[in-house]
Design a protein around this nucleic acid. Sequence first.
DNA 1: CTTGACCCTGTACTATGGTACAGTGTTTTA
DNA 2: TAAAACACTGTACCATAGTACAGGGTCAAG
Lengths: 138, 138
Amino acid sequence: MSGFRIGELAKRADVNVETIRYYERRGLLAPPPRSASGYRQYDELDVGRITFIKRAQSLGFTLAEITDLLRLRVDPDGSCGDVEDRARQTLARIEGKVEELARMKVALERLVSACENGRPTSACPIIEGLESVRELTT
Amino acid sequence: MSGFRIGELAKRADVNVETIRYYERRGLLAPPPRSASGYRQYDELDVGRITFIKRAQSLGFTLAEITDLLRLRVDPDGSCGDVEDRARQTLARIEGKVEELARMKVALERLVSACENGRPTSACPIIEGLESVRELTT
DNA sequence: CTTGACCCTGTACTATGGTACAGTGTTTTA
DNA sequence: TAAAACACTGTACCATAGTACAGGGTCAAG
């Protein structure tokens, strides 16, 4: 269970050292234990935490939303109605995102197949692709 | 086909007027025709364009990437190998995003069901849900 | 026992994606 | 026919998410 310092964590999670300290300031990462000389001590779990933050970000979540996501948990003695609500809201957002991605996928696949057939496409096939899908879907 | 001005477009696409002018400066929207007095003239298609930009953004694409996406099209006389490549790369990214969302979904669903059972969860169920999907199998 | 590679805090700067005027012209409406 | 209401350009400002020092301490290797 090797502990390591911030530079090593930055390397493993493929982010800047300053980004890690920034996440700590923002409350996305809990202040880690310190060595006798004051160096931050991390472990493998921290790599996962940062990777999660980066992925969530690439899916269009803001750091504020991710902060909230990371705090979502069922408390042993707290009521959990609120947690459940927020989790369900996020689930709904995720489903919406998946649908949008599916639409973009169809539009891009059409573009690729137009390519393969050597057919030119309209001025904006992406948007038109999305619109024609909507005709079929709704 | 009713043409309308920037304020009306902003209202229909639910964005700020300044955002539309900003997108034009950035090259995300082509400069529209102007009225005799110099007012920008838009139509329904522009609503779709802006809606697309907003959605792509919420899926984690940057304006630079969206600009590229919007320009993706098969040219009548240009070679299309490059267009196809870029479209395929985007398709791969989209598939990756869908997978990540699916993982987040599972983690959140587990959280909700832990909630329903009144069981407390660990310090960070979201990340742990993503990492150890097999243990505990709800 | 010093040099180089790290780490610390604190503060300043940057890029992206807008937003908000200021100063001026145009349209609509009371 | 005047005053809202809207549009124009240009420039300045803002929030978010980092990134980059400055000025200093720690520590292993040579």
